[in-house]
Simulated scan of single mutants.
Amino acid sequence: MAEIHPFYQQHRGAMEAAMRHRLDLAKAMLRERADITDIDGIRREVMDEFAIVLTQTPYVGGTASRMTDFFMRLIGFMAISRVLRRHGVPLPVIGEIERETYKAQLLDVPEAERLAAGDQFMSAENQALLREQAAKSTTESHQAEFPEDFVYDFVAPGPDDSFEFGINYRACGFCKFAGRHGDKEILPNICGLDFDAYATRGIRLERTQTLAGGASHCNFRFSRLQRDG
């Protein structure tokens, strides 16, 4: 078997723990919606597939790249999708199970911590970092060093816009991964995870098109959700 990149090997324990947590949260849905009775067997298959996915996960700069976190948090859903597809579970059902499982996992984090993370994401300091990393992602040198990385532009709002800032992803690491490993049918399910990822942190994500859906770019637009009190 191919080797896991040392960066992901270093974080493998935490990533596997997150996967086991997701599978625990998904038990009832796997029985009721996917008609799966051998839950323990599915768990073993998913964890075995996850070991394969880890060998396939591209290195895009480690802690120096904000996109590394996206791979580490979401690439495991590729393993879940692959296994459930092999068991004949329809893609829309897989998407529902994954999205609800991910939301439940995110909500396990205390609300104050989630909202603080959302505030940090929307902060002027983070927007400055996003501008910097977006500009770097488009350079020939970065794309040559990390060809499987995302390529994106920071979008400032115009006078008639209601969002605080946006990101246009012109190349997606998950799309590249899926194209390389035959997972293109899974992509819409991965894209669907984004909305809950931001909403649970107090952020509204608006997006009307995706690369996975055939568009020229993914148009992420961010604003703050209204909070009670």
Rank of each mutant, 00 (worst) to 15 (best):
M67H: 08
T68A: 06
T68Y: 07
F70A: 14
F71N: 01
M72Y: 03
L74W: 10
I75K: 09
G76F: 03
F77I: 06
M78D: 07
A79L: 10
A79W: 02
I80G: 04
G88W: 10
G88A: 03
P90R: 13
V93C: 12
I94L: 07
G95I: 08
E96T: 15
I97L: 05
R99P: 01
E100Q: 15
K103E: 03
K103L: 02
Q105N: 13
L106K: 08
L107C: 08
D108L: 13
E111A: 12
A112P: 01
A112C: 03
A112L: 13
E113A: 14
E113R: 15
L115T: 06
A116I: 04
A117M: 14
G118C: 09
Q120D: 13
F121M: 14
M122V: 09
M122I: 09
N126V: 08
Q127W: 09
L130V: 14
L130S: 09
R131V: 08
E132G: 05
Q133A: 06
T138F: 04
T138Y: 04
T138D: 01
S141D: 14
Q143K: 01
Q143Y: 00
A144F: 05
F146Q: 01
P147N: 03
E148V: 01
D149S: 15
F150N: 14
V151F: 01
Y152W: 15
F154S: 02
A156H: 04
G158M: 06
P159S: 02
D161P: 00
D161V: 05
D161G: 06
D161Y: 01
S162M: 00
F165V: 07
F165T: 10
I167L: 15
N168F: 01
Y169S: 00
Y169R: 02
C172L: 10
C172V: 10
G173E: 00
G173H: 08
F174A: 13
C175K: 05
K176S: 05
R180Y: 05
H181F: 15
G182F: 12
D183E: 15
D183A: 04
I186F: 14
L187A: 08
L187V: 14
L187W: 06
P188M: 12
P188N: 10
L193G: 04
D194I: 05
D194R: 01
A197L: 13
R201H: 11
R201Y: 03
E206K: 08
E206S: 11
E206Q: 09
E206H: 04
R207F: 02
